[in-house]
Amino acid sequence: MITYSVKRLLSGAALLAVLSVITFFALRLGTQGVAQQIAGQSAGPEAVALIEERYGLDRPLAQQFLSWAASALTGDLGRSWFTGQPVTEAVLSRLAVTVNLAVGSVALTGALGVLLGALAATRRGWPDRLVQVLSVLGQAVPGFVLAVGLVLLFAVQLRWFPATGYTDPSDSVGGWIRSLTLPVLALAVGSVGGVAQQVRGSMLDVLRRDHVRTLRSRGLPRRRVLYRYVLRNAAGPALSVLGLQFVIILSAAVVVEQVFSIPGLGPVALTSTARGDAPLVMGVVLVTGALVVLVNLLVDLLQAFLNPKVRLS
């Protein structure tokens, strides 16, 4: 189990390293003329050279990368080319908001997905149809379209929730919940269907397996077999899907944050990419990548906990 965890951890770190290398070189190649841009169109070659020297852009790329990586390991991701703000600070101050949003959506997705999926698998009838409709909607309607619809209905027409903005929980917990309700809903509705569908599918699959019949042949009531044995066996695939949904939700959050004007990582990503602010873009990529790696690690560990074959090999 320990070897397994260490292995997963190392593989996650390697993933981040490769992601950094690719992004770094791609970004630097794509922002060749950035010094001129920072200095302004009218600036002369001396001013541009000065900027290049200040940001270390005059050094060979490999060297630039190594020094970036060295300070990144200490937690320093450099400074924004345009605002001069430390990247770590800029990203971390926004990260909390996005994590709130994403974790809230994944939690809601997981809870509703397992509940609906289990209901659909065991009862058929209306839960089954609801899961079908939700999963079609989830796959088909992009989160931001749903977000726009929710704003139109609940904020513009009914005025139940604020259309835009974000309230920090330290200011008002009620306001925090109200400000997150619509965005979380917009993100979760897209994913619930997929998770529920997976739970339903794998439960039906497990229900057909021989060992379920054998357990029932020993007189165990259907309900106990269902919730103790079938659900546990079906949890693995469902967990994998939930992990994948986290990545999708993180992606969709960028657009949904834009719709609701929420000051998360999304706006940072948008403005920094529009300007070609490579250090900041790099920071966003790295932090979201790390977030995903962390979640995947968690999924893997839970997976091992659920599946003795993984745990004991």
Partner: peptide, 18 residues
């Protein structure tokens, strides 16, 4: 695994910058 752990939107934005 690498591609799937990359949030699509962020990568698209980064690619646009690059």
């Amino acid at each position: 695994a690498l591609v799937m752990s990359a949030p699509a939107m962020v990568i698209l934005l980064a690619a646009r910058t690059a």
